[in-house]
Every structure is written in structure tokens, then in C-alpha cells.
Amino acid sequence: MLGFVNILLGGIAYGFVLFLMAGGLSITLGLMGFANMAHAALAMVGGYTAALLIGKAGWPFLAAVVMAGLTAALTGAILERTLFRRLYQASELEQVLLTIGVVYAAIAAATYLVGPEQMAIAVPAWLDGNLRIGPVDLNRYRLFLIVTGLVLLVSLVGLIEHTTFGAKIRAAVFNRRMTASCGIDVDKLYALAFALGSALAGIGGALSVKLLGLDPNFPIKFLTELLIVVSVGGLGSLRGTFLAAMLFGIIDVVGKYLLPEIGAFIIYATALALLTVRPQGLVGRPR
């Protein structure tokens, strides 16, 4: 029984890792409606920034994670201004192919610049080891992920649903021309929202390196998982993304424990079944 609790906790922690990375995608793909396949590539930028700053330059962990977010935000903003902006009105397929082009270029660039080997990240002593609460052993790093994820969820939902910034974005997505007519600079708004999504990708990437590892194939390896989390949760709903991340995190870890021989099969089957029954996602409204 205790073993099962620990596995469940492992699943929840993995769910938070997924949420940390998918939260940004929920903004760019879900809210802004841009089929952004390059999200995991931005997470990789964050991951490498943090790992290199800690490993090579000796930065403290938290400062490196913040810097990872900033670097990814800057990269995302540059990509948005130079490339993505031109395809906001284009079809999903064109957006997909453009951003996949970015993914391929990013994989090649990472292999060239950093090398194809796995990158490890060192965490400070206060995040290492276990914390014992009663009979349960809790990994400190996983606890840290859970707390960070919860803070992120609350602040994102607050930002999108309770501030004028969030209201403006939702208005611009709903009716771009009408919003522009109200004197809102939609172009700038989209750039800001995209940078925010990219910053979250960078932070998520930096925090996930310890659990998921990091190599140049990261952008393809985790792209599909993130897409599934965001679309099963329901496009445009952060709560949905959170719910789906928890669901898949738990199913994945528990499934791999109970039925190790079928691996990730159970995840994809669940996703397919959920999308069949609710194409609009767990929380989404039918369009």
C-alpha cells in the first residue's frame, strides 16, 4: 500500500513536470490558436541554458532557472517577430510545417553547438535527497516541482482570467479586428503573449532536465506528449491542461509500474479514447 502511495506521488510529480512544460503551450496553441510545434524546442533552449550556466559558469540553481526562462522568452520573441507573426492568419497545416522547420533547425543547431550526448543538471543540496513525513518518503526535488507547478497554475489562471492583459488576449483571439478597433495594439499583445508562453517553456524545460534528461532530440521526443496534454485538456483552458497533465502523469507512471510490457501504449490509447468522446477536450466547450 505504501509502495503504491509512493508510485502515485511519482505520477503526480511527473504530471507537474508535464504541466510546467505544457502550460506555455496552453497559451500559444490553446489560447492564441497558433499551432506551435516549436514549443518543446524552446523548452530545450531553457534546459541547455540552465544546465550550461550551472555546470560551466557555476551559477546558483534558481538564478539559472530564471535565466533559462528569459533566454527562451527572448528566443521565442525573436522567432515570433521574424517568422511566426506572418502565419497567424494561415492554415494550421502551414503553421505546423513552419514550426516543424524551426524544430529541425533547432535539433541540428543543438547537435552542432552542444553535442549529441545526454546533458545532466546538478541541483543544490537543499533540493537533493528525501524528506520524511511520517511513513512516506518524499523526494525533495519532486516536492519542489509540485509547489512550483501549483504557484504557476494559480498565477496563470489569475493572469488570463482576472487581469486586463488576459481579457485583452481573449478579446483579440475572439475577434482580432474588433479588438484592434478598440485601440488595443493586437500585434504587441500577441508578441507579449508569445514571449510569456516561451518563458514558461524555458522554465519548464530547465526544471524537467533532472527527471527527463536532455539531448538534442528533446524537441521531437516531448512534442507529441505536450500536444496531447494540451489538446486532451481542451484548447484555451489552463485548468484543462492541468487536469490532463495530472491524468497522463499518473496513468503513465502507474501504468508503467503495473503493466511495464505495454509501455506508453496506454497513454496513447487513453488520449485517443478521450479525443473520440470529447473532441473539444476535457474542459473545452464545443466550437
Binding site: T224, S231, Y268, A269, A271, L272, T276, P279
Partner: peptide, 18 residues
């Protein structure tokens, strides 16, 4: 035949991964 838009991409993606 039932789903439309981005959901088509996701359903076909899941079939492929499966």
C-alpha cells in the same frame, strides 16, 4: 468523420503513436 479542426491532427497523431 466526427471531429474537425485541430482535433483531426491530434486524433491522427494518436493513431500513429499508438
Amino acid at each position: 468523420a466526427k471531429v474537425r479542426g485541430a482535433a483531426v491532427l491530434m486524433v491522427t497523431l494518436c493513431i500513429g503513436l499508438l
